[in-house]
Design a protein around this nucleic acid. Structure first.
Lengths: 195, 195, 195, 195
DNA sequence: AAGTAAACGAGACGGTACGTCCTGTCTTCTT
DNA sequence: AAGAAGACAGGACGTACCGTCTCGTTTACTT
């Protein structure tokens, strides 16, 4: 007669289909070219969902957008293992730039970062997502250090920021594209800088 | 030779004091802690100005914010001439990071970049401002190349983006500060990468 | 050959306690001072009942309110028999005004009448209730007519409406109280008018 | 050089056309048969007006509705002077019943009274309107008293309520019509009661 | 000095989105 | 079955902000 932590749940359960529809629609609207404003009403209507269903699960519009972005951009970039720092960096950055440079994704990222500047909830989610991503790249650099490819004095965090900085800076300002060549050159530069 | 460009001007002239008040108030409100909403009404009221006076001279809210930001962050970083690339970079980046890292300025930059993502006018102004800044840093690198401190194959634009990328990335996400040490390390890294 | 009319009922039977709780809570909430919103959620929560239990037995919110009102105000006013029309009227109207004039009851009546204007179900129930009440008063008048106390030309329905009209008019607008003195005076007036 | 109470007004003035459109549309929607819900959005849209323009001038939906009703039902019933109480009452009540009994007006009155039960602003306006109307009828009775047609002991307020009570009671419950015959009979009854 | 043109502070306007609230229905597990 | 719990679609509420449009006033240049 042990068990005591009862009340597993009562009442209707969250509708997963609605959740999916909301996030999918959000990405879709966010990625639309032109300055289409992405509204909660618009999202709700397009997802065939009541507004309250959105606000029941997310604290604000920004939170929805950020989660949608995280799911969309969430395809984990596989951590490569080519044996050399430069190879690993090139593989990782090429995949990353390729994913982020894709028009739809880039648009989504742009607006998500903007949203994160005004909505505290979005800001928090952005911080978490950024942190996750930085950790992966930092892991690659640490492995390089273990192999002796990175000098002791190197500031790994700065290197990570140089890479992601280029990515975000270009996405936000649009002054230059993100392509494989850029990724390769950046990999070369960073591994040289490290040695 | 009567000329034609007549009608020099008639009526009241633009009130410079109002212009100043508007831009100053914009920066002030933008920099306020806690998510103070910066609206045109708020700006107009705080500047003791009618809304129409704002819209008479700027096409949109974003345009006001961007101009305010440009004026605030506009203290030109002097182009140093230390004789070496590393010295120049360190001087320039230190001054730049110091200016941008200041709390008020960083907040203004954050929100301006966000505004630039939705307001086409702001976007255009941001692009121009970014371009101006990039050109200065690129000039420093070019001078280094002329001195033979930068290898022929270096992608100067990418180097510029690595520097400004770090700056914006940190301002926007706030995961790490912008200080002199970071600037120095970045200068070291970039000059090493260049050689 | 047990016949066929089997299965008289299966499953759980209607919970009378829940019914009572719902109606009691409805009256209680309706009578609360300060514009407490009386919603289905509020009623369900306060009655410790699921919303569906309400909608299983009543077609709409208005129907619940009206039934609650009918039960609350339902204490049948005894039909008096004093021997004279004026005596009967005075007894009846005094009891009626006393009941309806009570603060809680008046508030419940007010809101029920309002609800009856928008909810068709409530409207129907209100009509039935009104009809029942009118019939009682009309009966008193008819008995007076049989006794020769009411002239042939008198419009009994109009007299009934004069009495209930005063009651509802005062409850709805609150410009004057419903008390024994008013009831007595009205009884006097109506019996004079009838003669 | 006396005058000092300056600043007559500054800024754009209230748009009278918008005010008219709002009130007209409100009456129109309120009077629609069937249980068409009357929404602020609907009113705004039909009047070609922004919602804020409504909320700038009225504190709530109910207040708009009540003012619309007051304007619509506001055609002052002329105070008759036939020389006798019964004549005056008959003239006044006939005109009043005829106006209030008209389908559109009756519907508007019904819903306004309902609104007055939940919206405090509407309630206040209703009270004022009711008071104004009662005063007029009371004036007629007072004149009758001066002529000696009303006995000293008569409760004039009660008589007023008997008349308006019948009117509202029938409008709200719809169990009997308001027509000239009813008005005449009521006039006869009240003047008899008074004597 | 009178006339004319533009800029100004004030503030109402149409429109659009926000986030909350409520209704009546549907779903899940329990009694 | 009926019940408690609670999620759902739909839709109205009242607020906030944007960019535009009057008002009446003030400041400058032109006759």
């Amino acid at each position: 007669m042990t068990g005591e932590a009862r009340r597993p749940h009562t009442g209707r359960r969250r509708n997963e289909a609605a959740r999916r529809a909301i996030l999918d629609v959000a990405v879709d609207l966010l990625g639309r070219p032109g300055d289409t404003p992405v509204t909660i009403d618009t999202i709700a209507a397009a997802a065939g969902v009541g507004k309250q269903t959105i606000y029941r699960w997310w604290p604000s519009k920004g939170a929805v957008l950020l989660e949608a972005m995280a799911e969309h951009a969430g395809t984990a970039i596989p951590v490569p293992d080519t044996g050399t720092l430069r190879g690993d960096l090139e593989a990782f950055l090429t995949a990353t730039f390729r994913a982020a440079g894709e028009r739809l994704t880039a648009t989504v990222l742009r607006h998500s970062m903007a949203e994160a500047q005004r909505d505290p909830h979005a800001r928090e989610q952005m911080r978490a997502l950024i942190e996750t991503r930085r950790r992966v790249l930092r892991g690659i650099l640490e492995r390089g250090r273990e192999r002796g490819e990175v000098s002791a004095g190197s500031d790994l965090d700065l290197m990570v920021d140089q890479a992601y900085g280029v990515l975000w800076y270009r996405i936000l300002t649009g002054h230059a594209p993100l392509d494989d060549a850029q990724a390769a050159e950046l990999a070369r530069a960073l591994s040289a800088q490290a040695g």
